[in-house]
Amino acid sequence: MKVLAVQVLLVLWCVMAGQVAASDTDLSERKVEIRYNFEGSSLILFGSVRESDLLVPTDTYDVITIVQGPNREATVRRKAKVGGIWMNNASLTFQDVPGYYALSSTKSLADFIPAEMMKAKNIGFENLPFTSVATKMTASEVDGFRQGLYRQRSGTALYQQAIGAVEIVGQSLFRADINLPSHTPVGMFRVDVHIVQNGQIVASSELELEVDKAGFEKGIYDFAHEMPFLYGLTAVFIALGAGWLAGVLGKK
């Protein structure tokens, strides 16, 4: 039932989006696998802009690319000094927050797209519509937590904003690098590309990207989460065996 509803919505969306012709974009990889040697990954997002999409075919245009996902709950905590010790004493949980959010553009966003447009199209982290669990906090306090979340995740490269990182090649091709750090969360990611000319979005496209653990890493992770008791028992027996072996070898 749910799947059907989503499909209907998708068809509707396609019909409605029909007026804004999608540019042609693709990724160098649609699926990123986290294996034992995963150190992060670098993907290339590339695409072409059709002349018919542009308002003024001979004029310049700008490109915004957004990679985000997977949406999960995120609890942000704030420390305060209590009895001489810094400890967490306030927290706020946001819902449907992307674990990874990277925005790249040809140049500074303020130079080519109006703030209202960004708000309407949810472009930019500050315009993401995620909500917090109801609390008694004031709007400015909530904003403090939201900024704290952005700061923390930017610090570990989970949130990135790269001005000038989308490169336009010739008149109709563009490319951008997507850098996933080694601690990228696993799940489904959404890639949005917007072509902007004269302060208007003239074309958009959407892609999916999947990040998943694979091979040995996936095996261990699934084992730990699906059969935690057996996993713990295995960990203990490996430790006992290793300790015994070390004792035998150490004697020699």
Binding site: A74, T75, V76, R77, R78, K79, A80, K81, G84, I85, W86, M87, N88, S91, G144, F145, Q147, G148, L149, R151, Q152, R153, G155
Partner: peptide, 13 residues
Amino acid sequence: GLILEPDDLYSVA
């Protein structure tokens, strides 16, 4: 770590 003011008061669980 307990008595010095942290660089950022906010942290993500």
